[in-house]
Every structure is written in C-alpha cells, then in structure tokens.
Amino acid sequence: MKKAIHYINQFFAGIGGEDTADYKPEIREGAIGPALALSSMLNAEITHTVICGDNYMGSNTDEAIKEILSFLEDKEFDIFIAGPAFQAGRYGVACGNICKAVKERFNVPVLTSMNEENPGVEMFKKDMYVFKGGKSAAKLKDDVKVIASFANKILNGEKTGSADKEGFFPRGIRAQVWLESGKTGAERGVEMLIKKLNGLPFESELPIPKQDRVPVATPIADLSKAKIAIMTTGGIVPVNNPDRIQSASATRWGRYDISNVDKLESGVYKTIHAGFDPAAADADPNVIMPVDAMKTYLKEGKFGALHDYFYSTVGTGTTQAEAMRMAKEIIIKLEEDKVDAVIMTST
C-alpha cells in the first residue's frame, strides 16, 4: 500500500487553541484528527502526522520547516497532504509553506485545501494543488472527500482533470481540452453572445488575468557617465545565426560584439524573426537594432559608454518562463560589465 503523511496544526491535533499556537513541530505515528476522516477514503496508509502550532510556523518559518523536513528525511511516503485550513489564515499559510518545502525537498505530490477567503490561496495556488474548501470545520468531511478523490487518482497513476472539474484553484497552467459535449467554438460563441445580450450570466473561456507590475528602477542620474547596453527581441543575428536562435518560440539568445563597428551592415546581420516581413531589416538591420544611432550619440558624448555587445532573441511565442530565464542569464553578463541601463527594441 502507498504511504501518506499529513500535516495539521495544534488545534486540529486536539492540543489546544490560541494559547498553544506556539507549539513546536512534532511527528506522531498514525493518523490524528482530520486524518482519520481522510484515511478512510484514501488509497494509502497515513503513516505519520506532523503537528505544528500556527504561530510557531508563522514567526519561525525557516526553523519550523527545517525541523519538519528533518522528521521526514528517513520516512517513505508517496504523497503529502496538509489541512484543510478553511478560513484560518495562519493555518493556510502554514500549509502552503510546508507543502512547498516538502515538494521542493522530496519531489512528491503535495495537496492542501483552503477557503477562497484564506490569504494562503493567493500565495500558494500557483505552486501546488490548493483545493477549494469550506469556511469552517463543519465542512471537513466534504473538503477531505475532494482531496481524497484527487489524491487517489494520483496514487493510482490515473489522469487528473481540469481545475474546475477536480475542484482546485487554477494554478495558472492552461491546456487544451476536447469538450465532452462536442460543442463547437461557433456554438459556444453565439450562445455566449445571446446570454450577454440578454443580461444572463456567462463564463469567458479566457478570463483576463491580473497584471503583474514591477517597480520603476531608479533612473540614471548622469547619462554622460552611464554605461548602456542595447537589446532586441527582433531576432537580429549574424547572417549564419551562430547561436541557432529559433525564429519563433525561442529558447536561445545570442550576444554579438559591436565594439569595433559604427553600424550593423546588411549582409553581415539579418533578422531570423518569422513573425513579419524581414525585407526591411535585412536591408538595414539598424532599423531594428539601432547601433548606428547609439554610436553617434556615444561620439557626441550624450552617454558615457556602450557595452561591447548587443543581445538578441525572438519574442514570438516565447514562454514567459523562457524569457525570464534568458533575461536572468543576460543580466549576469550586464552586471559583470557594470552596465547602468538598457535600451531594448521589440518588433
């Protein structure tokens, strides 16, 4: 039989309420509290229960996680389940933190459950399966049932369904689904429009996600002393594309020395971006990567220095994760050369 380990707080372990919230982590054999309900539905034996006070986890997070991971070091388990935490904020965050750490350290599936009001949902829903739970322990049985049925699929190696079907919060991972109803895009579109026109509720298949903003970096105080680097996602590369950057869905980037040229020559550089007509950029690559203008400003003393290389990749279809990785790799190079600012062009 497969093995599971369960995490709960001091309250659900029956140790006490608020007065015992500083309770230090401990591990006990077998199932305790909510795990009893869970074990009756789970296709696995709950071999151990980890207990920790919510306040202890909240104020000594690193230590608590370290201690708990050390408990688990010599245990064999196939799945790790925490909670359900309902609306309890500190408990929810604790479940999220410990699940995340267990997943990273032991690479086993981790599951938890929280009410949508729980702040832990926003913090952790992208990192793990957080099931939509009730507001209070009165819903314990229902919540545990949802977790167990999903956990059983994982334990049995069965295919799991979409977020709405299984009952977990969307993790920001989207994938194609063939609708069982066979309803076509045309049918769904017209139906949705008729609902919208008649003021009836409808559900968009592509909810507009919240935007992620970055704080504005401190501006350059004195441009005439600044070292600047230039970059493009317009796919400008030497004609033989030495880094084999893909013309769409790029996973690679290149940097090319421009310390000894005044501009990018046609026939020496070209674009490999497949998303547009390349004729103009092939005839004059400076229309995408304006090396000529930058060199002129440099000579005129508008800014202090130009980084020796320009950086290039292709933007079309590139995943945010890949773009982030490439940016991080590039940033290392920029920091090595003490680059102060970046001018970037995109197509």
Binding site: D212, V214, P215, V216, A217, T218, P219, I220, M231, T233, T313, G315, A323, M324, M326, A327, K328, I330, I331, L334, E335, V339, D340, A341, V342, I343, M344, T345, S346, T347
Partner: peptide, 17 residues
C-alpha cells in the same frame, strides 16, 4: 524580458510599436 531587467534594478526603456 524588460520586466526582469527592471526587477534587477537596471533602468530600461522599451522601444516598440
């Protein structure tokens, strides 16, 4: 890309259509 660079504290300007 732009966001990662800005996140690293390097000021960046994006030229795009």
């Amino acid at each position: 890309m732009v966001k990662e660079i800005e996140r690293a504290g390097i000021p960046v300007v994006l030229l795009c259509n």
